[in-house]
Nucleic acid binder design. Sequence first.
DNA 1: CGTTTCTTCATCTATTGTGAAGAAATGCCG
DNA 2: CGGCATTTCTTCACAATAGATGAAGAAACG
Lengths: 112, 112
Amino acid sequence: MPSDPTSLGDFELLLLLTVLRLGDQAYGVPLCRELSAIRRRGVAVGSVYAALDRLQQKGLVSSTLGESTPERGGRAKRFFRLTQAGLRSVHHTRRLLDTLWTALPPLAEEPA
Amino acid sequence: MPSDPTSLGDFELLLLLTVLRLGDQAYGVPLCRELSAIRRRGVAVGSVYAALDRLQQKGLVSSTLGESTPERGGRAKRFFRLTQAGLRSVHHTRRLLDTLWTALPPLAEEPA
DNA sequence: CGTTTCTTCATCTATTGTGAAGAAATGCCG
DNA sequence: CGGCATTTCTTCACAATAGATGAAGAAACG
């Protein structure tokens, strides 16, 4: 019994947060760039679209097709936003984690 | 390029936190019970052991074989603890997420 | 056309999910 | 005392979902 809509994979969570951060510039390519920066490691563009599709199917994001822009390669983009359910899902995860690591023991100091 | 040792799957993160919480009672069966409670959904015992094996191979937990106890079915248990690397990994994830959702927009009120 | 930007697709590995089978201990009862 | 059901815990085989990768396809401009 998979796909409880309130439970997110780690990548999916980061992706939702990144969609929020990018606001009206949340489409595939910059999402991919931003995620690469956050993770400090290359993120293949295919992973991003696959995750977006999953999230859309679960109803956590919605997408709208933009218009083309008068720039070199200004092809139409597919923009993403969080749905109410998506936002709830992020809040839910946050509450859970905030609770669980309140009692997290501190890191021991490394000897110099 | 998988398995960056500092990046955790969502289940793995919960598992590490649960190992911390259970302390000297952190072995397969209670871990499974505790995770089921946290997630509010059944967790198969196989998933737990599989994740533990992964985490051990990545060096994030260590395990020691206990002795048998004088109880019905008091079979020897395999106890788990976080390594330094494991603790660092949790802290790392926490810092990242705490940063990312500082600007998280609040949930809209549902109309009654 | 060639180039640029963006998306879709096919394929592969890794993570997670599930339940049954296997080990190791105790307790009951002949 | 000896065997067998029972309990607790672990290992295993297999299925499904999530994530990773790079090449191919679409649509725009110069």
